[in-house]
Design a protein around this nucleic acid. Structure first.
Lengths: 202, 202
DNA sequence: CACCGGTAGGCAATTTTTTGCCTATTTCAT
DNA sequence: ATGAAATAGGCAAAAAATTGCCTACCGGTG
């Protein structure tokens, strides 16, 4: 599978050794990595580059991973965040998950595990990596409820289509929806099955 | 105002002492408690009584709390589940949260803490929507499209209500929606304006 | 007390969505 | 070539959501 969409990861950790090792490992596996050794640096990267996933240490001097993630949510409410930490309290994990963490890994992070997580994310987010996500995040304020809900519905259908490689029957089953209804929705929302699946196997 | 909605808690734990102590405590605080000492028993209670919240031990013989919760999700996708456990692995906590746990408490459970959690649930989020990502991902797949879209819509309306401190006129404007429609949606989705704003200024 | 602004419900007309039934097209294997 | 399976579209009935209009309640104020 080629990278049909940029998959840029922002790696945040105050430990430069960890940062270096992990970023080298990920780069060796064809993942675009940006690094930051502090929350401030991370915000700069975020402002200047299109970032798809954030992987951050929970414990950092000054600004904890939780605070950092909470702030990021202000501008990028939907960006997936993966936390890791060596000695996490149960309450930290709960807080992180409530904040929308997609994963929480134990430090030291197994490079392979991280890679696996990123691959899983890439898969499930493909639908929005292209256009929908921007539409989505841009849509976050000032748009009508209907617009936002439709954007979300579009995203759901697209990801499901991709996940099932364009197999309509499987999508119907997974989404528990009437075939006729799905077809209509796809037309209304401008979803092209063929475009999605052809993009898949590039 | 008294509890305008029945608030029945199903307490699941294989330790009968814990079960007895906690249920007595909660009953003394005006909460309807049903108990079950196994997943099977819990399913019976669920089938026979209207239950609003489930509080379950993570570790149980036969069927773990996670499996139990996953099965419950099949029939009651939106019911809030609170887990507790004495020696939880990080991965358990993450799995539980992904499954839509609203809280994860450490065992032994502080009765007061549990009570507080239940009060918070009663007052506001009777659903599961604590974070955008939960709404967004719809958690595990396997929910119908309709369910996931509704969950997202509920989340959007609730956040907007909170953001505008319960000012309906402002919400109407922000969401660009008809007043009558918003009222209907709130009823359908089980959103209580008063609960949300009273929770806000606690 | 009467009035006003903000909120909410009843009801019916209207609009939109969903669904079922039937048919067309494409692809793939026999 | 023929048939089976998967995907789509037309169309109309049925169901659901939206809307406007009117009324009602509540808390504060003149």
């Amino acid at each position: 599978m080629k990278a049909m969409a940029p998959h840029a990861v922002l790696l945040v950790d105050d430990d430069l050794d960890v940062l270096g090792a992990n970023s080298r490992f990920l780069r060796a596996h064809d993942i675009d990595v940006l690094v930051a050794d502090s929350a401030e640096a991370a915000f700069h990267r975020l402002a200047e580059h299109p970032i798809d996933v954030i992987v951050t240490d929970l414990r950092m001097p000054k600004c904890s991973g939780l605070e950092f993630a909470a702030q990021v949510r202000e501008s990028r409410p939907l960006i997936p965040v993966v936390f890791f930490s060596g000695y996490a309290q149960l309450s930290d994990v709960v807080a992180a998950m409530k904040l929308g963490a997609v994963e929480f890994l134990e430090k030291p992070v197994e490079p392979d595990e991280l890679l696996q997580v990123l691959h899983r994310l890439r898969q499930s987010y493909q639908g929005m990596l292209a256009s929908p996500r921007q539409a989505f995040e841009g849509l976050h304020q000032g748009y009508s409820l209907k617009m936002r809900v439709l954007a979300y519905e579009k995203y759901l259908i697209e990801s499901c289509l991709i996940e099932h490689e364009g197999n309509i029957a499987a999508v119907l089953d997974s989404l528990q929806i009437n075939r006729r209804t799905l077809n209509d929705k796809m037309i209304r929302l401008g979803i092209s099955r063929t475009a999605l699946i052809s993009r898949e196997d590039e």
